[in-house]
Design a protein around this nucleic acid. Structure first.
Lengths: 205, 205
DNA sequence: ATCCTATGTATTCACCTGTTTACTTGCAAG
DNA sequence: CTTGCAAGTAAACAGGTGAATACATAGGAT
């Protein structure tokens, strides 16, 4: 994949960018793809839409990225949203995750990438790409933060809350969660994440 | 929609079913659609696939159901999986929901319908159908069971866990959750659902 | 000034999509 | 038997898809 992507500096370095700027065009395509994929999902974005949004040409998508699926993969690899949330003091992890969810509810997602996930899940062609993304971006680093047995299962459980947010928001809207008291929402989610992640099982009533 | 579906008994009642059985064909199409939609999602199932799986003809899909989207809607309306889980003693609701999720993890979903939801979310054409389904099948009955302020927001929160299960299972597989102790998993999920649903906010550590 | 290569363009390809049309056939009533 | 209608079929339609093609051209190197 991307057979023509890594040969841009064979000659001496050019200081002045030409009007026909390979890198700029590539970047515009990438950004257009990111926005459109995030908005409509993989299946409902055509390469022609991407090219048009980037003010570019259809053929360049395949020239620069090899295929639509590769372009999707590159977009996905370009951003790591949850990195800062997961990193840090393990004890505060549930609260940070909860605050992250509440933040998404009130300000909308900071990046189109999370939406790309849940709106593109149906496609078998990009399934391995999505799997790897969720694995390396969320579950693996989350698992590393956890101690005790069954860490991965607990990380999966937490991922369920995070992943469920997208579909629920799309299907039910944000209004119900927005009208709720943010502090209370954060509190509830903190308990939920804690129940998912904590080494010992908290006793239910 | 379904302009030709409700005129089957204009004449006297026929005891013997003819070889050309309208109702049987309709049912076969419906079942094939349910299975295929559940397996691959709306976008990746063509009406030709459905007709082939039902041993029928493409044109009959539109004849009997009006359109692919209407067929999808009819499939979705045909089953109400969570009804028994939501009904019953409100106090035991978190535990019943938890047991339902664990059951899905260990035995797979009893119906393709839940999978239809998360694998078909991207399509704008059937979005209103999905919205209404989630609303009437899960959120509305769940909200009714709850007391206190912000009942709908709490129901939405619980829906997040349920809806997140599908994507997570598809992207991460079931192994991690299956290897976990079912009792412990149930316990964790019970606490999670309780934190989402309970009238008062449980204090986090 | 002339080449030459990389960038960009317009067009074509082969295929699939949902839907509609014209047609054939089974089957029961007259 | 004939007639008529409902059920089923095959083909076509109009449009869209990702990808590949052949061509045009900008702009630095010679």
């Amino acid at each position: 994949m991307l057979t023509q992507a890594d040969q841009e500096q064979t000659g001496p370095i050019r200081a002045k960018r030409p009007k026909r700027d390979r890198e700029a065009t590539r970047r515009r395509l990438l950004e257009a793809a990111r926005d459109l994929f995030g908005e409509h999902g993989y299946d409902h974005v055509s390469v022609r839409m991407i090219a048009a949004a980037a003010g570019s040409n259809v053929a360049l998508v395949n020239r620069y990225f090899g295929s639509k699926a590769s372009l999707f993969g590159e977009v996905l690899a370009g951003e790591s949203v949850l990195e800062k949330v997961v990193q840090g003091d393990p004890a505060g992890l549930p609260r940070r995750l909860a605050e992250h969810v509440v933040r998404q509810v009130h300000r909308g997602p900071s990046s189109p990438v999370p939406r790309m996930l849940d709106r593109s899940i149906g496609n078998p062609e990009i399934l391995p790409i999505l799997q790897q993304h969720l694995e390396t971006m969320l579950v693996a680093p989350l698992t590393e933060q956890l101690t005790g047995p069954g860490a991965r299962a607990r990380a999966t459980l937490a991922a369920t809350i995070i992943m469920g947010g997208g579909p629920v928001r799309r299907l039910l809207g944000l209004d119900d969660l927005r009208t709720a008291d943010p502090a209370e929402l954060t509190e509830r989610l903190t308990v939920m994440f804690d129940a998912a992640l904590s080494p010992g099982v908290r006793e239910s009533k």
